[in-house]
Nucleic acid binder design. Structure first.
Lengths: 343, 343
DNA sequence: TTGTACGCGTTATCAG
DNA sequence: CTGATAACGCGTACAA
């Protein structure tokens, strides 16, 4: 493959000049400029980013390690992050941790070796030694969606406390008293926080906190299904199940349907996370939506600040309740007409 | 950051020896070996992949350019590809073309500059000059999901001809005669092929081919919705709408629901592409599923072959019909109990 | 405005 | 088995 040297020879200039016109890092005569560009074109020259990075010690690349690429929440997040990064001239390398610490570590290690300029990490439940190293090593790092206890890293996330409060009071207003919650891993901030908000909201609404209604899953569909099974097997099953993320909601729905139960007649369901297809489920699922686009944007901006060596404040946005009809809400039989089509 | 040189000094050996133990590219005394490893550990040395790549002219990285990261089909595909690649010691860098040729080109260019060892490309509708260059440039390249006319590139894809035939005959068996099809872009092989298979199937089933029932979308939800609107506005609207991918199905469902129509009573729907949530729609959506996992695996293997300089045969797998209840199929009221939870 | 020459961190070659 | 050293392709002082 052609290199600067070839271009230089063909254009009859030195490699330095070629480099200068390619990066316009110094004034160059218009005449030589066009000669160089012509040579570039003729040879189909493609700058070698590897060599450039070695020299400049910067890759214009950020790493993104997400929890689960099959989870639409992360997918939307990745999309937003990509868009924002591209606008700033950065590429994004995505690693899918699949919620497994060892796989997260694999990608963190790989990305670090590839010398990404910074790292956006949705940390898995356990703090691995590697992550601890990276934190203390001072590489530009921003946590996304989740915090880890005891680690001093700027985090960009949504807070669902208010929305969960609104949900519980919505449910109480509907006359429900037996409300169950399927949380994420207790080690995850998103797991703990949502559970805490839920029990607090229960108390505020004057409802009892029944331990048997507090289930824990791992943010995967299978665990949501298992948790729903345990809840429905209870002597006094809940009237409504609130699942801690969209995948566990999917799993819970599976279990409910497999038992031939009606929603919301036999049991209601609500979800933390909102996804496009919730509108099409029968009945449409009441959910708590996060400002995903904004989350992605802010995360990239925060990371770029860190890369620039500037300090960064944590970012906390609010989630919001989207009432539909899966919890026994009164309302028209027909679907509301939220469009899923992007313009 | 520490380099081989630092490690060498600390271990009291030469850089060459350090390199040798790190890559075990040559026999090394056990004693020096442990000394080097100790030094690596002590310094928290992380090999610089950039420098390594510059020297070895290989990045152990493949590029993947997908059509749309918000489309679950591509998401699953990406997941499968990643798994297979990782198993072979490769990283995957994903670029999201968002079905836009210029964005596809952006990523192709970027990935090429980053010197990925090979490229997996789901080409957008138009053949761009860049893609043509790459093809003739001889970089290891495999098309995925879609072919482009007139380009000699190995392709890994699923063929839906048989499945579409099965779907149409299934619909005809149900007594439907007015069946509409919303295809993808005619420029895309997946668009053309599915349309051709559909009309052929119509003929085989002895049904008339009515041009007003042949709509074209762009594989995005909005276009599915618009197409459905046009079809439902027809003086004699179709009994069943078959959408060419899962996003257009989503859009069509939006339109149907917005009009307060019942599925399948007023109009039936079927989808090319199967996604987990189809099970939860009311009624569950009859669909054509592609062997996504296998597609991903085969694509990676094919690309690795090409990277190894070996020739590759095109791979064509079969899609299959999954009958559910959105087209007026008789059957139990309750849902079938397909689980969405992965084990 | 342009050219020469060095070095980025590795691996590979060639002597020892 | 080990060490010294030349590349890899590029950016950038420094000199002209």
């Amino acid at each position: 493959m052609a290199g600067v040297k070839d271009v230089a020879r063909l254009a009859g200039v030195s490699v330095a000049t070629v480099s200068r016109v390619l990066n316009d890092s110094a004034p160059v005569t218009e005449a030589t400029r066009v000669r160089v560009l012509a040579a570039v074109d003729e040879l189909g020259y493609r700058p070698n980013a590897v060599a450039r990075s070695l020299r400049t010690d910067t890759t214009r690349t950020i790493g993104l390690v997400i929890g689960d690429i099959l989870n639409p929440f992360f997918t939307e997040l990745a999309r937003a992050i990509e868009d924002e990064a591209r606008a700033s001239g950065y590429s994004v390398v995505i690693g899918n941790a699949d919620e497994r610490p060892e796989r997260q570590d694999h990608y963190v290690r790989t990305l670090l070796e590839q010398r990404v300029d910074g790292l956006l990490l949705c940390p898995t439940a356990q703090i691995t030694p590697l992550v601890r190293d990276v934190v203390s090593g001072g590489a530009p790092l921003v946590f996304l969606d989740r915090t880890l206890p005891g680690l001093d890293v700027p985090t960009v996330r949504a807070d669902g406390t208010a929305a969960i409060g609104a949900l519980v009071s919505h449910l109480a207003g509907l006359g429900h008293r037996r409300i169950a919650f399927v949380s994420g891993p207790a080690l995850l901030s998103t797991g703990r926080e949502r559970t805490a908000a839920f029990t607090a909201a229960l108390r505020t609404a004057g409802l009892p906190v029944r331990p048997e209604y507090l289930e824990a899953g791992d943010f995967q569909a299978a665990s949501g299904r298992a948790a729903a099974a345990r809840l429905l097997d209870l002597p006094e099953p809940p009237e409504v199940i609130v699942a801690g993320d969209n995948l566990m909601t999917l799993g819970a729905l599976d279990e409910i349907r497999a038992r031939g139960l009606a929603v919301p007649g036999d049991v209601g369901i609500a979800s933390y996370d909102d996804v496009p297809w919730f509108t099409h489920v029968d009945p449409p699922v009441t959910a708590i939506g996060q400002p995903v686009q904004e989350l992605g944007r802010r995360a990239v901006r925060a990371l770029l600040e860190r890369i620039g060596g500037r300090p960064v404040e944590p970012v906390v946005l609010d989630a919001r309740l989207v009432v539909r009809r899966s919890c026994g809400e009164p309302g028209a039989q027909g679907n509301e007409s939220e469009g899923s089509g992007r313009p």
